[in-house]
Amino acid sequence: MHQNTISVKWLVYTFLIGLSANACFSILTITLASFSPFPFLTLFFAVNHFYRIYIKEAHNEVTIRPAWAAFLIGIFSYSAFLAAQYPELGSNFISITLTLLLSIWLMYKLMFGDKRYSA
């Protein structure tokens, strides 16, 4: 018997992976961003834990789209944060708009979609 549940762990870890991956990329490519080893450590540990969860719950097709949305929310939210912190990098309108649209879709999916969640 297959249960259709949305795994909240997947959503949290994919958000962290997107956030830290964009932070690592920004540190390496943008000269205004100061170097810190913490985004690299966060990316390593988040990918490691996500892989363990993925192996345990390999047949969870219901969580794939919300997990991609959480990943993109992490990427675009860090881009918006960086553009707000350093205005000379350019506008953050597209990043904020995409973050809000994806967040609204994810909340709609969690609130009115499948009502079964797993922690």
Rank of each mutant, 00 (worst) to 15 (best):
R116L: 12
S118V: 10
M107I: 10
R65Y: 08
F45Y: 14
V62H: 05
L100P: 07
A84K: 07
T63D: 11
F76L: 15
G74R: 02
A67M: 10
I96G: 07
P66D: 08
L98F: 15
N48L: 15
S118N: 00
F71Y: 13
N48T: 00
W10G: 08
I94N: 12
L100W: 08
F40D: 09
R65P: 00
F45E: 02
R65T: 15
L32S: 07
V62K: 03
S118C: 01
F15S: 03
F71E: 04
L101C: 14
L100Q: 08
N92V: 08
S26L: 07
S7F: 09
I53V: 11
F93H: 15
A33H: 04
L11I: 00
G113K: 06
N60F: 09
L11M: 06
T31H: 03
A119W: 15
A46V: 01
G74E: 01
I17Q: 04
I55K: 15
F15M: 06
L43K: 05
E61G: 04
L100S: 11
H2L: 09
K56I: 15
E88F: 13
V8I: 09
L11V: 00
S26P: 10
E61I: 14
A70S: 00
K115R: 15
S103L: 14
N22I: 02
A58H: 09
I6H: 03
V8E: 03
Y13D: 00
M1F: 14
I104E: 06
K115L: 03
V62P: 04
H2Y: 13
F71A: 00
V62F: 05
S77R: 03
F35P: 08
R52F: 13
F50Y: 12
